[in-house]
Design a protein around this nucleic acid. Structure first.
Lengths: 186, 186
DNA sequence: GGTACCATGTAACTCGTTACATGATTGT
DNA sequence: ACAATCATGTAACGAGTTACATGGTACC
């Protein structure tokens, strides 16, 4: 009993994301949030409401170390990854993903029950979805350009995934639009 | 005060999914769950833990009507969509989706922080992901075939989305595998 | 003096899953 | 007898968001 937890097994992915971010260097909770918003945000959002409690839990588990580093009289706690934290991160990375890919896709849900919609309603719905995905794809493409070649191959690939994914969805909308057009004419 | 809720606005998507399922005909909670598992499951899972309480709430709101229809001495409650329920469903369908598409993608999260992985670990990770998506795509393709032309155009399209989506992800894995191969050789 | 940003936190809430409990019916 | 399936439910938990509260600092 009371076996010390030496891996991150059992912790949430968000907690691992925090460890991952801290593996780039020590920083404050605020910095972690900013880092997350600039990087993993499109596929893994992190909110303060989870971040600060989780940092405390990680510190209690010895995976990160907290150090007070006030700026002037503004309090500030900087966290750094401990060796055990680094091990936990490596551990999490090496673990296979369990359970399959649970989706929650409101667009598909509405379309599945979308028969009662009039053709024009359906059309405007699909056009709206398409526009959103096109915008998202454009934004991510821009972000990739900004990333340039400063980032590692994996980070670039992940970023590319984002724009390609939204492009995929936008194209799917286009195809479905064409299909219902054709069907209506027949 | 005490204004009767005449639309489904403010209710969860799961609640709308239930209304959508009931729009195909009256059925018991058990039947709804079975229906959901056969249809929307890949993009919108429904569990008993939500279903039964939600059915009570929908009945209380007057969107569905409950009728006791025991089979032998086994109790059974059959729900049907009321007119207000039908209106609520139509309403939900017509509402634009608010907020953008929040993803939670463990694969991308791991890859983003995947630099510490050895090339062979990375390779096996990507191959595993690819295999899973290929299997998922194959299953959904089979399901589409079973659906045949009995289903409406929208349902077919949604089902097609599923297999194409998994195919997209599998292909992305393949491309990334090729890329890291090439990079390692250089 | 105001605005934007740095910084940390918590309480309430929503959504959803998991595990359990209970019992009837049907088919082998 | 037994397993599978029909049928309904709840309690505990987990993950995550939102809204709020508080206060310092930098710059115009």
């Amino acid at each position: 009993m009371s076996q010390t937890r030496q891996s991150n097994t059992g912790r949430s992915n968000t907690s691992s994301a925090i460890l991952g971010i801290l593996s780039t260097g020590p920083m404050s909770g605020y910095d972690i949030k900013a880092f997350a918003d600039r990087s993993v945000r499109p596929f893994w959002a992190v909110s303060y409401g989870q971040l600060y409690p989780e940092l405390k839990a990680l510190a209690a588990a010895g995976l990160v170390a907290a150090e007070a580093q006030p700026r002037g009289s503004r309090r500030r706690t900087v966290y750094r990854l401990t060796e055990r934290g680094q091990a936990a991160l490596a551990n999490w990375l090496a673990e296979p993903i369990e359970g399959g890919h649970e989706l929650r896709d409101e667009m598909l849900l509405k379309l599945f029950f979308g028969d009662p919609l009039s053709p024009s309603q359906l059309q405007s719905f699909l056009r709206q979805m398409r526009r959103r995905h096109e915008e998202a794809a454009a934004n991510l493409t821009k972000q990739e350009a900004r990333l340039g070649s400063r980032a590692g191959a994996l980070r670039l690939a992940v970023s590319r995934f984002g724009s390609e994914y939204h492009r995929f969805r936008a194209d799917w909308c286009t195809r479905l639009l064409a299909e219902i057009q054709g069907g209506a004419r027949r």
